[in-house]
Design a protein around this nucleic acid. Structure first.
Lengths: 341, 341
DNA sequence: GACTGGCACTCGCTACAGTCGAGTGCCAGT
DNA sequence: ACTGGCACTCGACTGTAGCGAGTGCCAGTC
């Protein structure tokens, strides 16, 4: 399988042209627009090889070539040149993110920014609770048998939940509970909380036992098990660009997938290695509904740690180098923002 | 202008058939499917009148008739018969809403339920802060110069915000601040808070003044002015049903509009009169992007008070009676749920 | 042996003509 | 006031033809 340099150059040219024009690209157009230094006929031969190897294909016999998922993959892995952000883009990022007052605010601004820059659907995961540390736990008595538990994480996330106590608990006891819970849990990673919470129940004085027991149940339930992850989404209108040519005519499956938090988490939440950008192209995607889409995602967080993921989703025919650059840049800025916190 | 009973019956039949089949309906089909008791020719005469009056129109000369926005309006106002929920639907509502642990949970379940029942896009506004009363304000010291303010509303909503203090404040002072703020504000409607907060600053002891001042600014800013309203959305995938025939072929403007919180609030947030369902049909909509859509919305809240709005959005060609019934039913159930709180 | 020019061929796209039929408007008759 | 009948309109569909982009292949050249 000789994929010499020129064949690779041809593939790169095909991808770039197709992404730009959205139309199958033929041999003649190719030599005109790129300095390949050979004749159309030669390019045709190369194309035949590329097709045989599965990197490109013909929509119909008398049409130009279009990259396959495999072609995009090769392009992303070996052929794309890094595309530096324009000063305007750089400025847009800075301007957009200053003045955020809130974690909510940061996340919302980020997701809108990403959608606007890439002109794709943007997804941002809130800092994962599992990766956060407890900064403070507040117990607010609502009535004698009701307690509002508020957990503040070091990433700025705040979760709250109402607790129904089995029996009335006087204010002093609440103070005790608050002290105990904070002593034990503050500073610990949420994912490692369960044994600590367990110990808390066992060690607590008899008169606090019942309250502490229900409290612990709720803590575990809310903070560790149940929908601990949140997601923000923006730019769905961008799916309609490219007039139904992408996504083989129906946005249905895409929109459906975007409504499932679980799916989105799978897409951008799994990004482990920092500094790396993950690119999923078409079929590589495990979610059936998204077989016609590509995802560019990365992790973000203060400094080198990663507390969540963010990324964009669009047609396989997307500007990979550009999107990768933007996703990276935005992730870096958000990380810095969180570090200042 | 004679719109006798039969003409109205004809209009109703046209609307019902068109909504069901999505195809222009002709005179012959009409008399076959409905017991109008007259011949197609007579119906044709009636149709001519209805068209002249602007209730229906012909997409092209040799096609059947289609209702206009005005026709739908008349249908909704005078012709539609209430459509009682099926037992299955009733059960679905109940099943869906029990087991909600949280306000967040209630809202999310509600919006998904609505989307599923109506097969349209569903929108639910979180209980409006402006209409809520303060139940408790908690001040959590994060460091000596940072305070987390947590506000718990009687509707179950919880808002928090970080405050940067101008100078370090010792723990005892925080306790004082907490007491003062709660004494003054608990139980008051949020919309009426500003003067109270103002008074709070003026009345506070000199040593608390600086802290109270910044605190008050943040309180006003977060709770009254800034994005006090939240919205949940579901069922956007339903827009793709009816295969691009609705919305004249492009979902673009609709999706764009749905991303703007402000727009959605305008749609469902304005619903004042309880017990009433508001129906906006096509052009009646003030938002240009939504000129091809209809909105059915109503207010909800515990008992007779209204704390927020909810509704559905879909093509003008929608099942108005059904959607009205469902929106109402869901609003009532959610109200009951909130009342139990 | 690699590249090139030339040529025959494929096939989707567009335009055009013709037919079909659903649906209409109108009118004379009951 | 309603009805049956009839001429008419016009979109949808079908089939044909011509165009042209693009290909594959082959013989020739460096």
């Amino acid at each position: 399988m000789g994929l010499d340099d020129r064949k690779l150059a041809v593939l790169r040219a095909i991808v770039e042209d197709y992404v730009a024009t959205q139309e199958p690209v033929g041999s003649k157009a190719l030599v005109e627009r790129h300095q390949l230094g050979v004749s159309p006929a030669t390019v045709r031969n190369d194309m035949a090889v590329l097709e045989e190897e599965g990197y490109i294909r013909q929509p119909h016999t008398s049409a130009g070539r279009v990259p396959t998922d495999r072609g995009y993959r090769l392009f992303v892995d070996r052929l794309s040149r890094v595309k530096p952000l324009s000063p305007a883009e750089r400025r847009a990022i800075e301007r957009f993110l200053v003045g955020a007052v809130d974690l909510d605010d940061v996340v919302h601004r980020t997701v809108r920014l990403l959608a606007q820059l890439t002109r794709q659907v943007a997804v941002v995961q809130y800092p994962s609770l599992a990766r956060s540390k407890v900064r403070h736990l507040e117990l607010v008595p609502i009535s004698t048998t009701r307690l509002m538990v508020v957990m503040i994480a070091d990433t700025g996330r705040v979760e709250q939940r109402l607790v129904e106590l089995p029996a009335p608990v006087p204010a002093e006891h609440v103070t005790d509970l608050r002290r105990l819970v904070n002593e034990k849990l503050v500073g610990s990673q949420l994912a490692e909380t369960p044994p600590l919470v367990q110990a808390l129940v066992e060690e607590s004085a008899p008169h606090l036992r019942p309250a502490m027991t229900t409290l612990s149940t709720v803590l575990l339930e809310t903070l560790v098990e149940r929908h601990e992850e949140r997601i923000a989404l923006a730019g769905t209108a961008n799916l309609t660009r490219g007039g139904l040519l992408d996504f083989q005519g129906s946005l249905r499956p895409i929109l459906e997938a975007l409504e499932e938090e679980v799916v989105l988490l799978k897409l951008i939440g799994e990004t482990e290695p920092s500094n790396t950008t993950r690119v999923l192209i078409g079929d590589e995607n495990e979610i059936d509904n998204l077989r016609a889409a590509s995802v560019v995602s990365t992790g973000y967080g203060p400094g080198a740690t990663i507390v969540g993921g963010l990324g964009v989703l669009g047609p396989t025919r997307m500007d990979y180098p550009g999107n990768i650059a933007m996703v990276r840049a935005v992730a870096r800025y958000v990380g810095e923002l969180l570090a200042q916190n």
